[in-house]
């Protein structure tokens, strides 16, 4: 019944995405709850995008990415962003070796597969720019030499939503480079009890290495093959356009509330993330549910609120909800 190429693709994805369930099981050994965050980490990993994570301290952000790195046998670096951090502390620098009588390269912590940029908004713009440039270009220049960063390369930056004093908020142009902005919240009561039990035992559970970075690279190639119909393309562009011109989608009440809407990067990332979401759902084609499931995470940091919206306590979440309820599903 299904078209031959889609049928083959579906079967291929069924085979290739088998690791997703195992990866989830491994993650669940150490991370209680936070299914949303774990899924988004996989989406970022599979669609070659970076993630901005917003949540209060103590929600297992570091543990999650560290565990993911361990499961994939990838190198992991954690960089605590502070006001006195310098770009060289992040990227690396040239050091004069008296023994060799020459400058040698000292690579920074960015040369890893998974980077946890903790509290990214605590460092000044020059450090943020250095990181974001590396994220975009996937290469770093030290001295005269340019070094390619290893693949997979995933940056997970965190922001604390409650402490804003003495911070350097990320500019819109740079925040747009994150594929997803994931907001994580507290676990529920049952999950909290499980976390408690897990942490008072003598031995903390450990994850096993079950994948190699090459497996992720292969999976990425398959994700790109996931079929995205023209109807879904139209749906994605409608969502992004509705964030720019709300009045054209019967959302006149938001005219003047949005200072800027989603950029073309929003459309690209929404399509890529939807493909990755379909992949982790082990499907060879994207359906509107995939787009809707990922829309908040892709769009929330790409919609700028005007002063009027802030005065009326309108949030980007409300705007995205209204957009999803106004745009016709194909």
């Amino acid at each position: 019944m299904i078209h031959t190429d889609i049928k083959e693709l579906n079967e291929k994805i069924q085979r290739e995405s088998a690791f997703v369930d195992i990866l989830r099981l491994e993650m669940n050994k150490v991370i209680v709850g936070q299914k949303h965050m774990v899924d988004r980490l996989m989406i970022g990993l599979l669609s070659n995008g970076h993630i901005l994570l917003e949540g209060v301290p103590g929600l297992a952000k570091t543990l999650a990415i560290k565990s993911l790195a361990n499961i994939i046998d990838a190198r992991f670096s954690r960089i605590q962003f502070t006001p006195d951090l310098l770009p060289a502390d992040l990227l690396g620098t040239l050091i004069y070796s008296q023994k060799k009588e020459e400058f040698i390269v000292r690579k920074g912590p960015i040369f890893a597969n998974f980077i946890l940029a903790d509290e990214i908004n605590r460092s000044p713009a020059k450090v943020q720019s250095a990181l974001l440039e590396a994220m975009q270009e996937r290469q770093v220049t030290i001295g005269d030499t340019t070094y390619k960063l290893d693949e997979p390369f995933l940056v997970l930056a965190t922001q604390n939503p409650i402490e804003q004093e003495g911070t350097y908020p990320l500019p819109e142009a740079q925040i747009d480079r994150f594929m997803l902005k994931v907001v994580i919240s507290y676990p529920d009561k049952e999950e909290e009890k499980m976390i408690l039990r897990q942490n008072i035992q003598n031995e903390f559970p450990k994850t096993s290495t079950i994948l190699k970075p090459a497996d992720i690279m292969n999976a990425r190639a398959v994700v790109r093959e996931v079929y995205l119909d023209e109807k879904i393309e139209n749906y994605i562009t409608d969502i992004v356009f509705a964030s720019r011109y709300p009045e054209k989608y019967k959302l006149e009440r938001f005219t003047g509330m949005i200072s800027y809407g989603g950029s073309p990067r929003a459309s690209i990332n929404l399509a890529l993330a939807s493909k990755a979401y379909a992949f982790i759902k082990r499907r060879g084609y994207v359906i509107p549910e995939d787009v809707r499931a990922i829309a908040h995470d892709v769009m929330r940091h790409r919609i700028g609120l005007s002063y009027e919206a802030e005065a009326e306590n309108i949030t980007t979440e409300e705007i995205i909800n209204a957009i999803l309820n106004a745009v016709e599903v194909p």
Partner: peptide
């Protein structure tokens, strides 16, 4: 959905 998004031909 299959017909619309996955080229199915029932």
């Amino acid at each position: 959905d299959l017909v619309k998004f996955a080229k199915a031909e029932p």
